[in-house]
Design a protein around this nucleic acid. Sequence first.
DNA 1: AAAAAAT
Length: 457
Amino acid sequence: MTFATLGLAPEVLKAVAQEGYEHPTPIQAQAIPHVLSGRDLLGAAQTGTGKTAAFVLPILTRLAPHANTSVSPARHPLRALILTPTRELADQVFESAKTYGKHLPLRSHVVFGGVDINGQIPPLRAGVEVLVATPGRLLDHVQQKTVNLAQVEILVLDEADRMLDMGFILDIKKIISLLTNRKQTLLFSATFSPEIKRLAGEFLNAPALVEVARQNATNDNVEQILHPCETFRKRALLAHLIRTHDMGQVIVFNRTKQGADQVARDLKRDGFNCEAIHGDREQRARLEVMARFKEGQLKILVATDVAARGLDINELPFVVNFELPNSPEDYVHRIGRTGRAGAKGVAISLVDPGEEKALAGIQKLIKKELQLTPVPGYSPGTTRAPEARREESDPRREGERYRGRERAPARATHAALEPSIPALPRLREKPLSQIPALFLPPRAPAPQASAGDTSQD
DNA sequence: AAAAAAT
């Protein structure tokens, strides 16, 4: 199967080829013909499956025959609208539209909050065929009459589950009510709650169903490791894990913005190449941090759940949950940042005693029993230093207890834990000098150098 | 109870 057989416009195919893509991913192969045919679509897919291109490519193709180069706004009616939950995702989808539409005389634009609205107005006035937006700022533009939605034919609701979680339902309904010329609606969601089904039932017309990931299930490519850890030891354990695993790049998820700042500050102080991203940071800083992380220049991204969904980062090998998320769905999304497109990934979660309830919810959602693996020296009841661990353990004595556990896996609670589970299988003890990637280059001794950059604005 | 998103 190649892109050429899918019926995409030659200009689009050219851009796809220039990006180095030859073969569509499963969701692209399934979705593109449906979108081209004009049918509504319900897509069950996480980001990283090639979902964005699965709708961007056929939408550009559908708009292409009518494309013209006139500068008159009347001749550039807005025809495709893509709504996303987060600003970063909007920007990312926009980049994709720009890239794949570069050989077409179509205009794309993106609007989201957190940046000056005045800068967004001239391009809108000049006319764009494709607009990517977050709901709040789009409605702001609608009120200011800087955008007219009446000619929109194609609507995409990207990460619809997230938009509902974030309380966008009324905004979305309001926006849809303004799309009086809507002919085709595409709805993508990673999970399928009753609310999503209701939304789909209300706004989709006999949709084609395209599914690439199992519903509410975690990717088998992701190895899930959980370490019990007292809250106050978590930061030390995190540093230990980063030092002893060859992580390459990693996102460290936190539950709160303050927590993310704190962790980032600590890691930075220890010389780690890291930055925090969360909703309290300036939009410009958020975009900058994301850009550096995607380039590979930044190695450790300390994030809240703003980064849990939608961000498409190539081949991210590791994800760490410094804290478990408040909602079990977010756990699925977080660990979905790794193990992408066939590659193996590892998701490590640090679980303190207060998080057992959250853990139970996660296990219920993913229908999978998760084992807690203590890390000696960091987990409750384990006191030996990590270095001393392997030699000192008595395999036979430990084995008895461990084998019993394997036959009837203990529920993953602290109460069930014994301080005796064998060493981490993946632990790679390497001299720090051999894994410099995670560290910043040594800088000139400037006493003030580390102050300020991650702290809140 | 937290995060995200319009100001």
